[in-house]
């Protein structure tokens, strides 16, 4: 099983089916890859202003909703200036 074990207690980046991006610390997960994040924020991207960060706190994401989970390089992430990043939000999944 390509499990999420290595990601526990790490900062992770989630891409959801509807296109949302969420960053948080992976507090736990289960068989169905339902995921609990602590200290999480949604990063809202837009093409005409910087990235808006919306605090979500402790957050549970259903496994079905998840496209991708990535491990964040915290140093690289802190070096990013989110206010200068302009990008279209990721499109939702379309079959």
């Amino acid at each position: 099983m390509s499990s999420l074990q290595g990601y526990v207690d790490r900062r992770v980046f989630l891409v959801l089916q509807d296109g949302r991006s969420i960053v948080g610390t992976l507090a736990g997960y289960d068989q169905k890859s339902n995921v609990v994040l602590s200290n999480s924020t949604e990063r809202v991207y837009s093409s005409d202003e910087g990235v808006e960060e919306i605090p979500l706190g402790l957050y549970l994401v259903k496994g079905d909703m998840i496209c991708l989970i990535g491990e964040v390089d915290e140093e690289a992430d802190q070096a990013l200036d989110l206010t200068t990043i302009r990008a279209e939000p990721l499109p939702p999944i379309r079959y």
């Binding site: 980046f13 991708l68 989970i69 390089d73 690289a76 990013l80 990008a87 990721l90």
Partner: peptide
């Protein structure tokens, strides 16, 4: 797609 600039490795759900 600059969203994942600080991401080094990832887990991708097969269904997507």
């Amino acid at each position: 797609h600059p969203h994942m600039m600080a991401v080094k490795n990832c887990f991708i759900r097969g269904s997507v």
